[in-house]
Design a protein around this nucleic acid. Structure first.
Lengths: 234, 234
DNA sequence: CGTGCATTTGAGCTCGCTCAACCTCCGTGG
DNA sequence: CCACGGAGGTTGAGCGAGCTCAAATGCACG
C-alpha cells in the first residue's frame, strides 16, 4: 500500500505539468500489478473495469476474430496508457492484452476516468492525443496492407519495433523483448513461413541477425530501402 | 449571412442537448459552403484552417501515398464532422476530402475548436467518441485486410455503404451516390478489374444489380454470407 | 536427455494481379 | 440529329507472390 509513490508517474507525458499533490492523489487511487510473461492484462469483450498505465515491460495487444485468426494491433511500451475503453466510448475491452515479458502496471477503476479527465486537463488532452495518434497509426496500417508487398510490411514492422523498443548492442539494434516469427506474421498479415523465409534471406545479406524469439536489426538503413520498395528482391 | 439558422444543426448528435442560444452562437460563427461534385473540401498536408460539418451530400476521404496509390479511408455522411485535424493533435489535414456529389457544409475556423470543446461539453464528448469509433473502424479494416479474401472485403464494403447510405428501391437497396469500380477497389485494397469480375459474378447470381457508377444490393443476406466467408465461391 | 515449441526449408498450387483488348454509355459539338 | 471522344466497365490470358501442406532440424527447459 504505502509502497506506491508519485515518483512512479512523475515525468510521464500523460501526467505532465501536474502538481505533487495531484500526482499523490492520482497514485493514491491506483493499485499496482505484476503481470507474468504470457499472462493477460485484460481480455477482449471483458467488462472494462479498469484502465492501466504500463510502468515496465511490454504488452502485446491482439484482436481475435471469430474464425480463429489473431491480429496484433500494437505493442505498448512503458509510460503508455492501455485499456482506456471509456475514452473510446466502450464498456468492454476491444482486444486482448498479453504481457510479452514480466510487466509492472498501475490500474485504476474505470469510473475514475471521467473524473481524471475533468480535473486534470493535461491528462484528458494527452489521452485524446494518444487516441488520435493511434487512429493515424491504424490508418497507416490500412494503407500499408492495401499497397505494399509482404516484404515491405515486414520491414516496416521491424523498423517500427526497433524505433519503439530498440536497444543498442554490439551486433546492431535488438528488439528488446521475445518476439517470434508468428508474432511478426500477426503484425503484418502474413504467415510465419513467409516471415521466416524473409528473415533468413535478410540474414544472408547481413541486414539482420535473428534467433529463437530474437531479432536484431544490423542495417536499419538498408531495411528502410526495402520497406519503401526502393530495392529489387534478390 | 442571415440565411444560416440554428435549425440546420439542431437535432444532430454532435450538438445534442444544447440550448437554442448556444446553437445560435455556434451557427453564428460558421460560414456555409457548397462544394460541387468531384471538388475537394480540403486537401492532404494542407494547413488545417477549418473544420467542417457536412449538412448534405457525401464526401469521400482518400489518402494518397508517395508512390501514387490512393486508399479510401471512409465516406462521410450528413451530420458528421470532418477535417477535425485538431482533435487528432495535427495542424494539417491527414487526407483529401472529395465531394462524391454536390455537397453543402458548414465550416468553422480551426481555432474555435478548443473553445467549442470546452464550452459545450457534449460537443467535445461527441467528437472524441467519433474519433474513438473511427479508431475502431480502422482496426476492423486492418483485421479485414489481414484475414479476409478479396471477395469478403468487397462484400463487407458494399454492406457498410448500404448500411450507411442505402436507399430502398424496388430493385433492392441502392448506394445513394455515384460509385465506380475503381472507388470500391480503393476501399478494399484490390483492383478495379477484380471488383468488376466480382460484381459481374454476383449480378449473375442475382445478389446485386449494378451499372455505371451505380450499385444496388438485391440480397443483403446472401452478400453477408459471402462477407463472412460462409459460402464457397461458384 | 527427452519433450515440445520455434524455426527452417521444400514443393506445389491458387488467388488475384498485370497486361491487353474491347465494349458501352453519355455528353458534346458540328 | 448524329458522329465522336472519353470515361467507365468487361473480359480473357498468363503469371507470380505468397499461401498451404509437409517434413525435418534445432534449441531450451525440465
Amino acid at each position: 500500500m504505502g509502497s506506491l509513490d508519485r515518483s512512479l508517474i512523475a515525468g510521464l507525458s500523460v501526467f505532465e505539468s501536474l502538481s505533487a499533490a495531484d500526482l499523490d492523489r492520482i497514485v493514491g487511487q491506483a493499485r499496482s500489478l505484476r503481470i507474468p510473461r504470457d499472462q493477460p492484462v485484460f481480455e477482449q469483450e471483458q467488462e472494462a473495469h479498469s484502465f492501466f498505465l504500463l510502468l515496465d515491460g511490454h504488452v502485446r495487444v491482439v484482436k481475435s476474430t471469430p474464425d480463429g485468426h489473431e491480429v496484433t494491433v500494437r505493442y505498448i511500451s512503458p509510460g503508455e496508457l492501455m485499456g482506456i475503453a471509456h475514452a473510446l466510448g466502450r464498456t468492454t475491452y476491444p482486444a486482448n492484452a498479453i504481457a510479452a515479458v514480466d510487466c509492472v502496471a498501475l490500474a485504476w477503476p474505470s469510473q475514475l476516468w471521467p473524473t481524471f479527465a475533468a480535473e486534470f486537463p493535461s491528462f484528458g488532452a494527452n489521452t485524446y492525443k494518444a487516441v488520435g495518434s493511434r487512429l493515424q497509426d491504424a490508418h497507416s496500417r490500412v494503407i500499408e496492407m492495401s499497397t505494399e508487398q509482404v516484404d515491405q510490411r515486414v520491414a516496416h514492422a521491424l523498423l517500427k519495433l526497433v524505433k519503439q523498443t530498440g536497444k543498442r548492442t554490439e551486433e546492431g539494434i535488438l528488439i528488446d523483448f521475445p518476439i517470434s516469427r508468428q508474432d511478426i506474421a500477426e503484425m503484418t498479415g502474413t504467415t510465419l513461413h513467409t516471415v521466416s523465409r524473409l528473415l533468413s534471406a535478410w540474414e544472408g545479406e547481413g541486414l539482420v541477425r535473428s534467433g529463437r524469439q530474437k531479432v536484431t536489426v544490423v542495417e536499419p538503413h538498408r531495411l528502410l530501402l526495402i520497406a519503401e520498395g526502393r530495392v529489387e528482391k534478390g
